[in-house]
Deep mutational scan, measured.
Amino acid sequence: MIINNLKLIREKKKISQSELAALLESSRQTINGIEKNKYNPSLQLALKIAYYLNTPLEDIFQWQ
C-alpha cells in the first residue's frame, strides 16, 4: 500500500488542488483521489508532482 503526504506538503506550499492539477495537466478530482488514497498515481504523474512541489518523491509517497 502506498501512503502519501501530498495534502500536507501541498498545503504547506500554499498550493490549491486546482492549481496543482493545472500544473500537472490533470484534474482536481485526480489530486483529491490521490490525497485520499483512493487513487495511486502513475510513475509519470508521481514524478511530475514531486517536480512541481520541489520535493523528493520519497517524501511524498511511501510504501507501507
Rank of each mutant, 00 (worst) to 15 (best):
M1Q: 05
M1H: 06
M1L: 15
M1D: 04
M1G: 05
M1A: 06
I2W: 09
I2Y: 10
I2P: 05
I2T: 09
I2S: 08
I2C: 14
I3V: 14
I3E: 08
I3H: 07
N4C: 09
N4E: 02
N4G: 03
N4H: 03
N4D: 04
N5R: 08
N5V: 05
N5G: 03
N5D: 04
L6F: 00
L6E: 04
L6N: 03
L6G: 03
L6M: 10
K7N: 06
K7F: 05
K7Q: 12
K7W: 04
K7T: 07
L8C: 15
L8D: 14
L8M: 13
L8W: 08
L8T: 15
L8K: 15
L8I: 14
L8A: 14
I9S: 01
I9F: 08
I9R: 02
I9L: 10
I9C: 09
I9W: 08
R10M: 08
R10V: 05
R10P: 04
R10Q: 03
R10N: 02
R10G: 03
E11A: 08
E11D: 08
E11I: 12
K12D: 09
K12M: 13
K12R: 13
K12L: 13
K12P: 01
K12Y: 10
K13S: 09
K13H: 11
K13A: 13
K13C: 14
K13N: 11
K13M: 15
K13P: 00
K14T: 05
K14M: 11
K14R: 12
I15Y: 08
I15Q: 02
I15F: 08
I15K: 04
I15V: 11
S16A: 05
S16W: 07
S16P: 05
S16R: 06
S16D: 04
Q17L: 12
Q17H: 04
Q17N: 03
Q17C: 05
Q17R: 07
S18Y: 11
S18W: 12
S18P: 05
S18L: 11
S18G: 12
S18N: 13
E19L: 10
E19Q: 15
E19M: 11
E19A: 14
L20P: 00
L20Q: 00
L20W: 02
L20C: 05
A21D: 03
A21Q: 02
A21S: 06
A21W: 03
A21P: 00
A21H: 02
A21N: 02
A21G: 06
A22L: 12
A22F: 12
A22E: 12
A22V: 11
A22H: 13
A22I: 12
L23V: 11
L23Y: 12
L24W: 01
L24H: 00
L24T: 15
E25V: 09
E25Q: 15
E25G: 15
E25H: 15
E25T: 09
S26E: 15
S26H: 09
S26A: 13
S26K: 10
S26Q: 12
S26V: 15
S26N: 07
S26P: 02
S27Q: 06
S27G: 06
S27I: 06
S27E: 08
S27V: 06
R28T: 15
R28E: 15
R28H: 10
R28I: 15
R28P: 15
R28L: 14
Q29N: 12
Q29P: 06
Q29F: 09
Q29G: 12
T30S: 06
T30F: 14
T30E: 09
I31Y: 01
I31V: 11
I31Q: 02
I31L: 07
I31F: 01
I31T: 01
N32F: 05
N32D: 15
N32R: 15
G33M: 15
I34S: 02
I34W: 04
I34V: 04
I34L: 07
E35Q: 02
E35N: 01
E35D: 01
K36I: 12
K36Y: 07
K36T: 15
K36Q: 14
K36H: 13
K36S: 14
K36C: 11
N37W: 09
N37E: 06
N37A: 07
N37I: 03
K38W: 14
K38E: 14
K38V: 13
K38N: 11
K38S: 10
K38G: 07
Y39R: 11
Y39E: 10
Y39S: 08
N40F: 14
N40M: 15
N40C: 15
N40T: 15
N40L: 14
N40D: 09
P41C: 03
P41F: 04
P41D: 02
P41R: 02
S42T: 12
S42A: 05
S42G: 10
S42K: 05
S42F: 04
S42I: 04
L43G: 04
L43A: 06
L43R: 11
L43Q: 08
Q44P: 10
Q44M: 10
Q44C: 14
Q44N: 11
L45V: 06
L45I: 08
L45D: 04
L45F: 13
L45Y: 06
A46W: 04
A46L: 06
A46D: 00
A46E: 04
A46C: 08
A46T: 03
A46K: 04
L47W: 07
L47F: 07
L47G: 07
K48V: 05
K48I: 05
K48G: 06
I49D: 00
I49H: 00
I49V: 05
I49W: 02
A50Q: 03
A50C: 05
A50V: 04
A50E: 03
A50H: 02
Y51G: 07
Y51N: 08
Y51C: 11
Y51A: 08
Y51E: 10
Y52C: 11
Y52G: 03
Y52Q: 08
Y52P: 00
Y52H: 12
Y52E: 07
L53P: 00
L53A: 00
N54S: 11
N54G: 11
N54K: 10
N54Q: 13
N54E: 14
N54V: 06
N54R: 08
T55E: 11
T55P: 01
T55F: 06
T55V: 12
P56Q: 08
P56K: 10
P56D: 09
P56F: 06
L57S: 01
L57P: 02
E58T: 10
E58G: 13
E58Y: 12
E58A: 12
D59V: 08
D59Y: 09
D59H: 11
I60A: 01
I60F: 04
I60V: 08
I60G: 00
I60E: 00
F61Q: 00
F61S: 00
F61K: 01
F61Y: 01
F61D: 00
F61C: 03
Q62K: 12
Q62D: 05
Q62L: 08
Q62I: 10
Q62N: 06
Q62E: 09
W63Y: 06
W63V: 04
W63D: 02
W63I: 05
Q64Y: 11
Q64L: 06
Q64R: 12
Q64I: 08
Q64P: 14
Q64T: 12
